[in-house]
């Protein structure tokens, strides 16, 4: 069992995950932010490896990705930075990014480097289910990595079942079909969609993401799921602050308390 799976064994609700982009706001920020987030009480982390053309992202994460690339962040450098990860951070860590940088690195090499660094899982929104199953799944399993797929309100029951079957971490439930950084959709249909997914009795925990920005949206998501992920709101906060590390405890407290 990796750390992510252990977490879900122990904790069943109000799980809080934070996304941030590696190398943003400065190149050396990656591990410092991870450390500060653990201290502040985050349950697990998603560290973004930047891509020049992040299709699924809104302006905030587009910007953090662009700045990170300008700062010199690459997958090679990220894996060097992560050599220190497990001496300083104990909570589960996932890497999140797009297919092309991973493919250039070599998927097998990528999985091995991630496992060596103590990473527990990977989220690559534009890696197709079919290609994962047929080509890459073995590399992930061999290295003990949980691969995470997204589900949207438009995803069919049949496909959700397939995703559940191929997943061994959690199911990433999108709060609506949108890019990152929009506000939370709180319509009745969205409630029905969460209920629809739950009624399929998935074996994997459900974590809601996209549009979770504060206590209200976090609580709302937790009515339906085991936890929620905050991305753009956190990235915006550390991007605006000079002394960004000092803002992290308060950011988490405001969501939790």
């Amino acid at each position: 069992m990796n750390r992510l799976q252990q977490l879900f064994e122990k904790k069943k609700n109000n799980i809080l995950s934070i996304y941030f982009t590696a190398g943003y706001p400065e190149i050396g920020a990656t591990i410092k932010i991870a450390e500060a987030l653990e201290k502040a009480g985050a349950d697990f982390l998603e560290i973004g490896f930047p891509y020049s053309d992040p299709l699924a992202d809104g302006p905030v994460i587009q910007n953090s990705s662009q700045v990170a690339i300008e700062n010199g962040m690459t997958l090679k450098l990220l894996f060097q930075q992560l050599k220190d990860l497990r001496t300083r951070v104990t909570i589960p860590v996932l890497l999140m990014g797009y297919a092309n940088p991973m493919i250039q690195y070599g998927v097998a090499n990528f999985c091995k480097a991630a496992a060596d660094a103590g990473v527990d899982g990977v989220i690559v929104p534009d890696l197709p289910l079919n290609e994962y199953e047929e080509i890459y799944q073995d590399d992930f399993i061999k290295n003990g990595l949980s691969n995470v797929f997204l589900v949207t309100p438009q995803t069919s029951n049949e496909r959700i079942k397939k995703i559940d079957e191929l997943s061994n971490g959690f199911i990433y439930l999108l709060s609506s079909s949108s890019t990152t950084g929009k506000s939370l959709n709180v319509s009745d249909e969205i409630g029905e969609y969460y209920e629809r997914v739950k009624s399929l009795n998935p074996k994997n925990p459900l974590i809601i993401g996209f549009g979770i920005s504060d206590k209200n949206s976090f609580m709302r998501a937790n009515q339906y799921a085991n936890g929620a992920i905050v991305g753009s709101a956190f990235v915006k906060t550390i991007g605006n602050a000079k002394d960004y590390l000092s803002h992290i405890p308060q950011f988490i407290r405001k969501i939790r308390d």
């Binding site: 297919a99 534009d126 890696l127 997204l150 949207t152 438009q154 995803t155 999108l174 079909s177 949108s178």
Partner: peptide, 11 residues
């Protein structure tokens, strides 16, 4: 070829 797209575009 193929379809390397996020789930949001899948349907």
């Amino acid at each position: 070829g193929g379809a390397y797209i996020p789930e949001m575009l899948y349907p």
